[in-house]
Design a protein around this nucleic acid. Structure first.
Lengths: 268, 268
DNA sequence: TATTATTGCTTCATATTGAAGCAATAAGTA
DNA sequence: TACTTATTGCTTCAATATGAAGCAATAATA
């Protein structure tokens, strides 16, 4: 309800000066409301991974206040837990349902924020110290419809190999999110939320290679992947490309979920 | 400073009724102060592991308010980051320096707290909703001097095989801390903070077995551990026990730290 | 129909793991 | 003092997993 009101306000068109006044008023009003509905001093930032054109992307948002790129984020309502909060934030942003979410770390350095909103009163919500809970999310790129809200000018997928400078410590949050994802590749399956329902072995391998940032041996990948016993080979193959048509697979959802719970490699 | 004042107050001896009055006053005063110095709605709970007599223990605290056992915890000062907070909390509790600390998860369910402090006003600090950051800590059991503070009656090591009922969701926090530690055993070395400086191979194996909750093959453990190349074999052995004296080892601190950073098993 | 790059899957050498066992040893015991 | 015993250090052998390479099948294109 509240978001809608603000969203519509932000679409008004006036002279620059008036726009600035308007923006200030929005911030101040929004601030008052934030103090009422959110847990103070706590934010959520999300590293949202999507896979498209054989490259890994993350969602970024361009902030109005400072014209910098940021990770999509928000706050925790007084009436929800943090996973619900992350879900709500991302659903508003992407429209996607069924987002795979994993919290990975709290970022709490005293100098995380960078003195934005200096023209505002110290009591304004946005000027508070925020400790941020980092989530990473895996979403189906094709099912996402990006939404721009009242704080942001733009919302775009960026290739992780070609990221713009991110504001505050969002670069660090991204790095930590990616490295967590990488580690989890060693004992959890991945792909159910990143790939389309049907996919080929080379496509799956490419996903692994991009996350890990290195080439893998084809035959060995194939063998290991099959041994995990979470794939179902379909009676179709992907036609249309040059050369031999690769077989299509999908995940055995039961076994995939079981592998998620129990882990793939014992270790000890 | 503040803590000292409270600590001394809590040692006064009066009639029961007077004591209750006194306790209420302490809580109210402490509440006012907490609102001033701490980040609201945010707490820290620590699963502090110590190793003694071939068994793994965690630190528990008995709360005055409800007579229940709890994990040691506290709040985050407005002037510190969460690791500093966890360090401060544990240093006050244990006197230990150089504590290995690892945050592992935020616990944020709406019904985490259990309606304690019902006789107090709703504005009291302790009645707020708290999201808690879980840390696990590895400490040298022999170097710890437990401290009882104004909120607690007792502070004791408890064997993880024989834990009392823990208040709120502290049982879940413990479980998650232990399972995180277990997972980390697969790609990180452990022991530098749990074992004495010099230790034997059977002692190290016992530590692994207790954390993992299962027996390991002796010869294979020996072989794998040596291949990690983080141990230094000393020219001494542990005399005094019956049977063959086991060789003493210590960690090569350089290599141990490097292994902590880089991980022990590649995976992919 | 031949060419070509890609794919499915196997093979062989090498490394790692699981299970077992043997010799050395240090107390306790005869 | 020699024997007994359980533990320890470390090796061996079989089973399994991994790394590297390669061969046959295939599908578009020439």
């Amino acid at each position: 309800m509240v978001l809608k009101k603000l969203k519509s306000t932000s679409f008004l068109y006036f002279s620059d000066e008036f726009l600035i006044m308007e923006f200030k008023k929005i911030i101040e009003e929004k601030s008052k409301e934030s103090w009422e509905i959110y847990i103070p001093n706590l934010s959520i930032d999300c590293v949202v991974f999507g896979y498209h054109n054989a490259s890994l992307k993350i969602l970024t948002v361009k902030m109005k206040e400072n014209n910098l790129w940021a990770l999509p984020g928000g706050y925790v309502l007084k009436t929800e837990n943090i996973k619900e909060a992350a879900n709500r934030i991302l659903q508003q942003r992407t429209g996607a349902e069924n987002i795979y979410l994993q919290q990975f770390r709290v970022f709490s350095d005293l100098n995380r924020s960078e003195g934005f909103f200096s023209e505002f009163d110290d009591t304004i919500w946005n000027k508070q110290r925020f400790l941020s809970i980092g989530f990473y999310a895996l979403v189906d790129y094709s099912k996402v419809n990006l939404v721009v809200d009242s704080f942001s000018d733009a919302c775009e997928w960026k290739d992780i190999e070609d990221l713009p400078q991110l504001m505050m410590d969002h670069g660090i949050i991204f790095e930590k999110g990616l490295s967590t994802l990488r580690k989890q590749l060693n004992y959890k399956p991945i792909g159910l939320n990143l790939l389309p329902e049907k996919f080929t072995m080379p496509e799956l391998q490419k996903l692994y290679e991009i996350i890990l940032g290195k080439k893998l041996n084809r035959g060995n990948f194939f063998r290991k992947m099959l041994r995990y016993d979470i794939l179902v080979k379909l009676d179709e193959s992907r036609k249309g490309g040059a050369h031999k048509s690769p077989d299509l697979y999908m995940y055995d959802t039961e076994k995939y979920q079981a592998a998620l719970r129990n882990g793939l490699n014992e270790g000890w």
